[in-house]
Amino acid sequence: MITMTSRPQLRVLFFDVFGTCVAQRKPVADALWRAAKEALESDTSLVNSEVRAKATKMSYEQWFEFGGEWNKDVEVFTSDSKAKHGNVDWRAVDKYRFESLHKLLAQLGLIIPHEDASTSGLAVKEGSLWNESHLKELGLVWHRLPPWPDTCRGLDLLNKQFSTVTLSNTYNDLMTNLVAHSSIPFKHVYTSDLFQSFKPNPKVYLGAAEKMGVKPEECALVAAHLDDLKGAKACGFYAIYIERPLEEKTPELREQNIPDMVVKEDEDGFIALAERLGIEVV
């Protein structure tokens, strides 16, 4: 069931992207699992026997959990960056994603780091499950995440009545490429780097509203993350919660009744949202 409170006259729908518009957990696990399988089926001389034995024991479920830990490690990095500098260099975050992958794989004994590893943190010895080129390619999975099944159709419907705009904690080049890669029909692409900060800093939400030429009360944030919605609502935005599988990182916030509207996980995401906002779905 979709629940909502009375809402103002909305003109702009801003969207969180990672987890809300594009899936994260399964695509990352799929990429890791597929790359591991390809490496294990390659020439047996390329992968160290000890590494091969460890990788062979890794189940899909373990790669799924590994992907979650990888994402969590990067989130810790961004939080630390914000605490230390009051801002985040999102291109540095992209670089750290590669370094994090290297670190976590080394902890599992799936790659063998060079003792004199380069400053990029990606130098590996022969016999590793993947070489440096493979690691870089895996790191780019975050640039190619696929949309949820309802995303593109739902946005086509929402575009009939609203301006739809990304509002994501990343840098603009990455988001522009991701949206183009998956043919997601947003009308505008905004990212946190445009506002010299990142969510939930009010500068991002209020800056985005100002850039669109609308008042905060004419805006909604659509997100699968309650902490993001809490930040937007504090700035006067209407808060629309789209439940996505395994995406809520702060479930304790459920007790605060933050969303003004909720689309449940077993509903049809953005398509259900369009219908609830008065758009005919045929």
Rank of each mutant, 00 (worst) to 15 (best):
T119A: 13
I240Y: 01
E99V: 14
V12C: 10
A29D: 04
S197D: 10
Q24H: 12
D173A: 12
N172S: 13
G139Y: 03
K136R: 15
D116N: 14
E126K: 08
V88R: 01
G154T: 03
E267T: 12
G139T: 04
R254T: 13
Q62T: 07
A23T: 08
K82I: 09
D173V: 10
I242S: 01
A180L: 12
G109T: 07
R91P: 10
L101A: 07
E265V: 07
I240N: 00
D116H: 08
K54R: 15
L40Y: 05
L40H: 03
F14E: 00
L101H: 04
N257R: 10
V76Q: 13
G67T: 04
E247N: 09
L167Y: 01
H102Q: 14
V263L: 06
S192Y: 01
P259E: 03
A35D: 08
Y60W: 09
G207W: 00
K72R: 15
C219T: 02
T191Y: 04
F195E: 00
Y238Q: 06
H143M: 13
V204R: 00
V189Q: 04
L174H: 08
A209P: 02
L221A: 05
L229C: 01
S182H: 03
V28Q: 11
A234Y: 01
V263E: 01
R244K: 09
F162S: 03
G127D: 08
C235M: 01
K26M: 11
P245E: 08
R34W: 14
S6D: 12
D16T: 01
A239S: 05
V28M: 09
V179R: 07
D228K: 01
K136F: 03
K37P: 06
T151A: 09
L140P: 05
F98A: 12
Y60H: 12
W63K: 03
E38I: 07
T166H: 02
L129K: 01
G139A: 09
F14Q: 00
T119G: 15
V47F: 03
P216R: 01
T166A: 08
D227F: 11
Y190N: 07
S45Y: 06
K84I: 11
E75V: 08
M4V: 15
S118F: 11
V22W: 00
A92Q: 13
Y171F: 13
K84V: 12
D16H: 04
V263H: 06
L155Q: 04
E252H: 15
Q107R: 13
L140H: 13
T5R: 12
V17G: 01
L104S: 11
R97N: 11
T170I: 11
S133N: 09
V141P: 07
L104P: 02
A53R: 11
K26D: 14
T119R: 14
E243C: 13
E265I: 12
H85G: 06
D94T: 13
A29M: 13
E75F: 15
P259D: 02
V74L: 07
P202M: 06
